[in-house]
Design a binder for these strands. Sequence first.
DNA 1: CAGTGGTCTAGACCACTCC
DNA 2: GAGTGGTCTAGACCACTGC
Lengths: 260, 260
Amino acid sequence: MDMIEHLGPTRQTAFGPPGAAPPGMARWGSLAALLRERIIAGEWPPGHALAAESTLAADHDVALGTMRQALAQLAAEGLLERRHGKGTFVRGALAGAPMLRFFRFGDGAVGGEPRLPTSRILARRVRAAPSPVAQALRLAARQPALHLHRLRLLDGRPRLLEDIWLPLHRFAPLLDSEPSTWGDLLYPHYEAACGVTVHRATDEIRFGILKPNEARLLELPVSHPAAVVQRLASDIAGCAVECRFTRGDAHAFRYSVAIT
Amino acid sequence: MDMIEHLGPTRQTAFGPPGAAPPGMARWGSLAALLRERIIAGEWPPGHALAAESTLAADHDVALGTMRQALAQLAAEGLLERRHGKGTFVRGALAGAPMLRFFRFGDGAVGGEPRLPTSRILARRVRAAPSPVAQALRLAARQPALHLHRLRLLDGRPRLLEDIWLPLHRFAPLLDSEPSTWGDLLYPHYEAACGVTVHRATDEIRFGILKPNEARLLELPVSHPAAVVQRLASDIAGCAVECRFTRGDAHAFRYSVAIT
DNA sequence: CAGTGGTCTAGACCACTCC
DNA sequence: GAGTGGTCTAGACCACTGC
């Protein structure tokens, strides 16, 4: 022990080139990258508990604080969830990215309580995806896609109309069950039936005009203005897994953004 | 020294009740709150450099790491900005919350380069604010407001129309200068002319119909659909300082949101 | 070069959760 | 009570900035 005392108790780059420390990445960044890869590779499934931070630190020969910083980074990225007294867990599917956060349907009902939307699958077909969708999903030419047509209702009244495109090669199990048994939330069903976890998504909002059949299904006048939300959802590895177009009454649309 | 050795080197709650540590706030949280108050109170103006973290730590009798966590918290809140090798600074006005991020005006020009919008103040009046605006700005009844009517152009073509409401008691200096000298960005002018720093804002988006005079100014047909962005901007203390309504062609509207 | 923030260590105690 | 994450300490070295 005394032989290495001159190195001091804090020889930080003991396991890497001493001088070439952070060219683009500090020690905790490398650890985060390493753990990130193992999570993305599926080594630990969603919901799985990682080893204790002290164990992880010892396993990787770093101090506790360094490992904590790596874990904090992954938690900030949404890959991990840390629960005091319980452990560190791989995050599962998106809790919810409810489309209704974009809309305020006043109705005649007393406001306040958030009513849960119900959904009805109107069609389920295998067909070639339109070019922009195929591009978004990174489908090869003529590679088949699963198309869902879905109506969402609030208090029994049709409110949102959805066109959902899924790469067939990952969602084939959806062809084997009755859509009416899927429930009102698709992402949990994707995970249960197909093992596909939706981890993040981007919504793009634009303005449009309802086509006649869309207006009819939503019980709105023809050429009524619509808010269109195009969502591209990805799994934990960043692969696009769903392309969804949601249309609703433009006059009911309302959305808030915070700027800092 | 040896006399207190039995306390160990890590008597952490030496300056607080030993057992009642985090009832709702840990040590670093209290430090953050303390510094936050001093920043909000204006003790350090925007752009001011704080003392070195080591100095701050010593001043408050905490370890470096504890003070670092407090400073990191404030940086995450957007109150501070830390620059490696330089120091820790109080953040100034919002760099920019460009309205044009909501719109894509394709034009006939080659895409790519972000063209800067110019602005033209069409009117500047002192008048009572409409009730919703007065409520948003927390103005007392009949307390006067400054109203600006502003047109924003891209490549010389009118694109956005803005109604801006300001509490007169903080923006009186705006009555003393020629609006054409204000430049194209208002927030820096607010800071320079009135000492009001816009620190954060929320945008609320909806769709509506242009009124005849609005359509005329934007060179669009009457009753053309419009995207309406209502922005409520606040200063560093969280006081609402500006209520702004921006209207533009709904068909040019496009906005992206990331969900994680 | 001195001063700043960024990284790392080794070890302690605390609060939460569950058995 | 055992195990987990959360907080704190005291001190070291590193990388960036500007004189």
